[in-house]
Amino acid sequence: MSALTGSPFLQGTAERAERAARALRLWITAGPGLVWIVIFLILPSAILLAIGFFSIGNYGNPHLPLTLEPFREVAGYSILGWSPDNIETILRSLLQAISAAILTILLAYPVVFFIVAQPVALRPLLLLFVILPSWTNQVVRTYAWMELLGPGSALSHLAQTLGFIPPHLGLMPGVFAMQIGLTYNYLPYMVVPLYAAAEKLDWTLVEAGRDLYASGTKLFWSAVFPQTIPGLLSGIILVAIPAFGDYVVPTLLGGGKSMMIGSLIASQFLDTPNWPYGAALTIFMLVFTCGGLIVFRVMSKRLGTSEGSMI
């Protein structure tokens, strides 16, 4: 080994060049995605956060001076004193999201295991039937439900005849219609991850369960259900988060009586403009959702099944 090649100076330059090349590769591969995230996620969120600290102008627009008023308003304080309206709205939205998740789970399990029981060649087609409606516009699909559940519809007539609702009223608008709309719209987002889990289900574990005296529901809970947990957790996230902030369904099917957080935010920008309040609500919802995700992640880690799920 000559003194020259071993000199710290030359070694240093080689290392530097290597490091620079690595950095360049990193920027070329990760760069475009990073730019996208900065422009379409970080920047808008930062602008919203900033707007949340402004006062309201004459047209609801953000105006100086800076203030904490919008965030106080999120917490329920206004010039009229504290009101539980916002907390109720958030809880109501949360409840809607949770029940949408539960209903989609209850519907998705039979659907998924029906598909998995079919010949392999047929499965993609059946899955497509589940996904296909979600390729059309959500507003259009929700309008269709308005027709189906409206006062003059056959379903409403049936409900009137059976005495579930007073005459001349429809199944829509209301919480019931809203729940149907959410469940219908988000069902594919539960079916797909659950299907992915069910398709690669290890059936010898089910046989082992039967061999070891398990049957019926015991067999399901001990040998089938644990294997579907990763898919289930992904599905819950895919359904509950968008259902929590959904705007179209509560607006079209919910009617005015029960405000949801998505509608509350939208009205701050569209109906009676109050941009700073709307921005503060949005930021709150973002933080709330992230917090929920963290709790969910910790819980699913404790279940020991977070592998393979998308959280």
Binding site: D202, T204, L205, E207, A208, G209, R210, D211, L212, Y213, A214, S215, L219, S222, A223, P226, G304, T305
Partner: peptide
């Protein structure tokens, strides 16, 4: 199978991972 006094050792072991 769950009502037979017979138990199986599976080729893939089929141990419950959870």
């Amino acid at each position: 199978p769950h009502r037979r006094a017979v138990n199986t050792v599976f080729q893939s072991y089929a141990l419950f991972p959870h």
